[in-house]
């Protein structure tokens, strides 16, 4: 593995949520329950899991868009969580985010040119004229015409808006981009356009990515390694080819086998999957996955399995795979 761009260790975030009517009670959502992973320089790291597993919280906690409760985040060796206001501002130039729904993340009353030059103004990059010139270059880089500068978000299609979202993330020349489901809201033909665009940018600019997605196919295509999350914890991590060839955690295997492939001779394994996703408010005791696991044993109901590193960058938390 190349030198790490980002190292995350024991990252934790619990939310207190009021629930219920008419008398609300406070419950704790264990959104991130101590996760650790490393993103290599110039690499794409996939964070995979179903809704509510904590993958988006992880992406935001790394950038401190959500303040984590505990843990360590190091960007090129520098402690992100300990950074004061000034340092954090400097770090944010290097770490940017692309959201799933670019329409929700663009101000509808602000022209695209303004949206692109604003971050440069805030961070004091360049003179006004230079900012405009750079914004135009960025638009060209993401495949949009210059005249987009004076248009509003509603004038663009979903795919074009995502291009704008990407251009905005690039305005400060970041080294790491957290891409949170960047292609999930798009039609397949547009999805592949955006994936190819991101791939080109990564190669040209040597960007590192944390790529958050529920779509295993997209992660297999875009990333070199990945982590699978379930109810706030990482259950398996490793290089893409190895995980897809031989998933170790039963949940990883379940996700892979439930993902539909365009081949009628390989229909999704439909009937073997049982059970619902439990909630992160009250995760099952022992291994959180045991309620849905086809291999659940007595010990799985009692003890959460320890993290087991397996070499070659692989690791798994499952009682079936202890050394």
């Amino acid at each position: 593995m190349p030198e790490p761009m980002l190292e995350v260790a024991g990252l934790r975030k619990f939310f207190e949520v009021k629930r219920g009517f008419p008398r609300a009670t406070t419950v704790t959502v264990r959104a991130l329950d101590g996760i650790s992973f490393t993103v290599g320089a110039g690499q794409s790291f996939g964070l995979v899991g179903e809704s509510g597993c904590g993958k988006s919280t992880a992406g935001r906690a790394v950038l401190r868009l959500i303040e984590p409760d505990e843990g360590r985040v190091a960007f090129k060796g520098e402690d992100v969580l300990a950074a004061g206001k000034e340092r954090l501002r400097a770090l944010r130039r290097k770490m940017q985010i692309v959201f799933q729904d670019p329409y929700a993340s663009l101000n509808p009353r602000r022209m695209i040119g303004k949206a692109l030059t604003e971050p440069m103004r805030v961070h004091g990059v360049g003179a006004p004229g230079e900012r405009v010139a750079r914004a135009e270059l960025l638009l060209a880089e993401v495949g949009l015409p210059k005249n987009a500068m004076t248009r509003y978000p509603h004038e663009f299609s979903g795919g074009q808006r995502q291009r704008i979202g990407i251009a905005r993330a690039l305005t400060l020349e970041p080294e790491l981009i957290v891409a949170d489901e960047p292609v999930s809201a798009l039609d397949v033909s547009i999805q592949s356009q955006i994936l190819l665009l991101l791939q080109g940018l990564q190669e040209r600019r040597r960007l590192s990515f944390i790529f958050i997605s529920h779509d295993l196919g997209v992660v297999r295509y875009f990333c070199q390694s990945m982590a699978v999350m379930y109810l706030g914890r990482i259950v398996e991590t490793g290089p893409i080819p190895a995980i897809f060839k031989e998933p170790l955690h039963p949940y990883t295997k379940m996700l892979r086998d439930a993902s539909p492939v365009p081949d009628p001779t390989r229909k999704v394994a439909m009937l073997r999957i049982e059970g619902e996703v439990p909630s992160a408010v009250n995760p099952p005791a022992g291994c959180h996955f045991h309620t849905r696991c086809p291999h659940a044993m007595e010990i799985c109901r009692k003890a959460y399995p320890e993290w087991t590193p397996l070499g070659d960058g692989r690791g798994v938390a499952c009682h079936l795979h202890k050394v």
Partner: peptide, 8 residues
């Protein structure tokens, strides 16, 4: 069909 990144 060529736009789909496949899982398998």
């Amino acid at each position: 069909l060529r736009t789909i990144p496949r899982v398998d």
